[in-house]
């Protein structure tokens, strides 16, 4: 055990260093004309109003939001996987993000303006999506087979996605307002969006800390967890609420981004071992790392235009999905 802990401390230090480095680079590079050197000068405080506008008003919020979205999606993925005991349970794949996006699109079509109630509507949508998914796991035969759950989730996601597209097809104004948002992107987000998201993240963080011990015990099975004095049903409801807060918030800021909730806990588990309490800590650094890295590539790969970030997370997530399915250790989570 001490060996594992010491090893993990080193890994954690490396991850945090990498995160600081990636955040810094994220301030320096972009699709526009302000290159790394000018950005660095602006960071150092030279009078270059263009560059400092780009760095402080565009890239800094974008970086912070990327960090928040990464944390939220990584942690939500780990939580969802812990309660469904399914390493493939991922908010993006299972329709939780799609539920959030659908709810936002629906309110837009019904006349609301995008910014105001986006977060709470998205969270509500995520909650409904989450409940649909988990009730599917209750259906005989589906819950015990991780792959079938993902199939059900994919079908649900697809359905909501096409309904969302259909609504936007009929409503030009809504379509203009959220065209970029609906494919998932960190471009053009403002700090206000992040500020609106923070309370939810705090609430979820407190809830997760309070639930840490029973959540870990749930890995031994519901009956064993009950035997240790926990209430698995209650824990499941709290987790669903947290996932809805986190995924809804993240989706409201950045649109539906798939695979982050799959890849991040997968990597975190490989580093942290089977205890969800350690896994969650690792998710907090790996999530932002993945989102920021994907966002940077999205900015520079086809400069001067940008790729949607979801394309890159999918590129990185699909192989992980295949690897998890092929590893044949699914039921043991």
């Amino acid at each position: 055990m001490p060996i594992r802990v010491a090893h993990q401390r080193t890994q954690m230090t490396l991850l945090l260093t990498a995160l600081v480095a990636v955040s810094l680079v994220s301030l320096l590079v972009g699709a526009g004309e302000v290159g790394p050197l000018r950005s660095l000068a602006a960071l150092a405080g030279t009078q270059d109003s263009d560059a400092s506008f780009v760095v402080w008003q565009l890239r800094a919020p974008r970086t912070l939001i990327g960090i928040a979205v990464g944390m939220a999606l990584g942690v939500a993925g780990a939580l969802l996987q812990a309660v469904s005991r399914n390493p493939l349970a991922e908010p993006g794949l299972l329709g939780v993000s799609a539920g959030a996006a659908f709810a936002v699109a629906l309110t837009l079509v019904m006349g609301a303006s995008a910014a105001t109630l986006r977060i709470s509507v998205a969270q509500l949508g995520a909650l409904v999506g989450c409940l649909c998914v988990l009730s599917v796991t209750r259906v005989r035969g589906v819950g015990s087979d991780p792959v079938r759950l993902v199939l059900a989730g994919a079908a649900f996601s697809g359905l909501l996605g096409s309904l969302t597209s259909l609504m936007l097809l009929y409503d030009q104004r809504a379509a203009d307002e959220i065209r970029f948002w609906v494919i998932g992107s960190l471009a053009g987000r403002r700090l206000d969006d992040l500020a609106a998201m923070l309370p939810s993240m705090l609430v979820a963080a407190v809830a997760v800390v309070l639930m840490a011990r029973p959540l870990a015990a749930l890995a031994l099975g519901e009956r064993a967890a009950s035997g240790l004095g926990h209430h698995p049903g209650l824990i499941r409801w709290c987790v669903v609420a947290c996932v809805a807060l986190l995924v809804g918030g993240a989706t409201a800021m950045a649109g539906p981004i798939a695979f982050v909730g799959l890849v991040v806990p997968f990597v975190a588990r490989a580093m942290a071992g089977p205890d969800i309490r350690r896994t969650l800590w690792f998710c907090l650094s790996i999530g932002p790392l993945m989102v920021l890295a994907a966002d940077m590539i999205a900015r520079v790969a086809v400069a001067p235009s940008e790729l949607p970030i979801g394309v890159l997370t999918a590129l990185c997530g699909a192989p992980v999905l295949v690897a998890v399915v092929r590893a044949r250790r699914l039921p043991s989570l």
Binding site: L220, G221, G273, P274, S332, L333
Partner: peptide, 8 residues
Amino acid sequence: AVAPEGLT
């Protein structure tokens, strides 16, 4: 009872 893989 089943434990998650890797649990010591």
